[in-house]
Amino acid sequence: MNTKIFKSGRTRFVILLLPLWFLTYHFLQPATDWITDDLLKLTKGAHFTETFRFFIFEVPKVMLLLVLIIFAVGIVRSFFTAERTRKALEGRKTFTGNVMAAALGIVTPFCSCSAIPLFLGFVESGIPLGITFSFLIAAPMINEVAVILLYGLFGWQTALIYVVTGLFVAIIAGWIIGRLKLEKWVEPWVYEIQTGEQDENLEKLTFETRIGMGFDAVKEIVGKVWLYVVLGIAVGAAAHGYVPEEFMASLMGKTTWYSVPLSILIGIPLYSNAAGIVPIVSVLIEKGASLGTALAFMMSVIGLSLPEMVILRKVLKLPMILTFIAIVGTGIMLVGFLFNYVF
């Protein structure tokens, strides 16, 4: 069968590409400096030079990270399905269930169009509303693109802080929603849904298929976000070179208390994806914005998105949506204040 050769060819392709990836990544900084200083002979320290250097270094770096990690995440996700996640959450006690739901939200394949079937499936099998929400908060907020960009532009500490505080917000917000007993604000038809026997082990995926799913994930996600990454870094690079230091300190610094709630409010309707927002936020911080404020802004933009609310409106009544925004928003605000206070 020629499909077999084609598939194993892909595995071989990956083995060949990996060392090439590491070489390119390793020599990116010297190559950038060589192009900037030796090839183009730009004046060191000039506004344009530093903008240029930032841009031609960050774009390939972030792209390399995106391709590798999304590929890996694509393979990891092939081991998780919504059905399996649901099974794992069935019958869990409130707090444990919230923690598990938030954690599974990171690894279970999720896109905004799968939110409704997932919600229905969870409710139908008796998973409490609060646990379902822990999942629905974590899944979009802690996504691989956001984490990769944070790692690439801020370092692993910030990426880790983002993941941990994101989980915290998802767990606590879901737990509170569960305690409030808001089932009355779920559209009644949701409870009338009947699901049939859903057979679980229908597909035995081979290793080659999983590699293929990694490739598909790269094609799909990188194809969708690359332009935002380039634009975001371009804006970031321009600000890096031209905007004076401490420019953002008065507006988004830690001494202005209202900067946190204000950034969250601005963040809700701003539905940029992580790819566009993180490079800009990285420069905001460089120019004096505080970490807490920037973190709150980012979580609000990525985690509280208007399009998702519109989709969820099909299954949730308006007061439920507003309560959801209020609780998650408050959680994010606490994170923002905490980090402004600590750092």
Binding site: T81, A82, E83, R86, P109, S114, I116, P117, L118, L120, G121, E124, I193, Q194, T195, G196, Q198
Partner: peptide, 10 residues
């Protein structure tokens, strides 16, 4: 969606 849910949630 009600028809889909009878078969799968993915």
């Amino acid at each position: 969606i009600t028809e889909i849910m009878k078969v799968t949630m993915t």
